[in-house]
Design a protein around this nucleic acid. Structure first.
Lengths: 112, 112
DNA sequence: CCATCATATGTCTATATGAGTATATGTCAA
DNA sequence: TTGACATATACTCATATAGACATATGATGG
């Protein structure tokens, strides 16, 4: 699943499908990608459980399977506490960092 | 960033760091990975902006940079509406799917 | 049946990268 | 300075895979 969204084409496909289900042809057109490439990415997404499809006439209608995406969402939540804590920013100031720390950012201090 | 979390070793590193900052040696030990591998994964994570580090004595103390992780979290939110909607499950029943659909789930139907 | 449309798959190449090993860099202590 | 420790990098090999092309599969209409 994590691997499935690691590719930008697939992320674009998912973003398209998030707006509503699509056929392969519609994706091929809207994303301006060769059809075999779309099909192969859809295959990866299907194997990862990120999308489902149904056959409608000669078309294959794909749509997002929210469940798999939700797992990804849940995984990122383990870091939620970190970006809620202002400690983090504060920590930056207490320790001397040796990368791109703009030590002159004296504007935002005093979080209420 | 998406690529950074596509690897399970790196996800484990991030999960460790989510619990608190660590030195490379601590990660090497707790994850039971060879040290060069840990360093290389940390390098990828650093380049992706997922972690930061500071030098403390002979040690390098790494910690999560929540900002980058938050972006990932935000990306997954575009699918939030989908797993909130019950339409999705309903849609399964209206169309004939050709995968693992338990067609005998006749309990939830009738929302006009 | 055949022809056509829509999609999937196979094959090839180039490239990215993870694992493993050896070694370089850098820091501290004496 | 030397030596030990902590970490980073270089190098090699094997594997995974995206891209592009050709082609196979499957459904529809006559």
């Amino acid at each position: 699943m994590f691997n499935a969204v690691a590719d930008e084409c697939r992320r674009r496909i998912l973003a398209s499908l998030a707006r509503g289900e699509c056929t392969v042809g519609q994706l091929t057109e809207s994303l301006a990608l060769p059809q075999p490439q779309v099909s192969k990415h859809l295959r990866v997404l299907r194997d990862a459980g990120a999308v489902r499809c149904r056959t409608q006439g000669r078309h294959r209608v794909y749509r997002v399977d929210p469940t798999a995406l939700r797992e990804l969402h849940e995984w990122t939540r383990q870091f939620e506490a970190l970006w809620n804590e202002r400690y983090d920013r504060l920590d930056d100031l207490l320790h001397d960092e040796e990368f791109d720390v703009d030590t002159d950012s004296d504007d935002e201090k005093g979080p209420t």
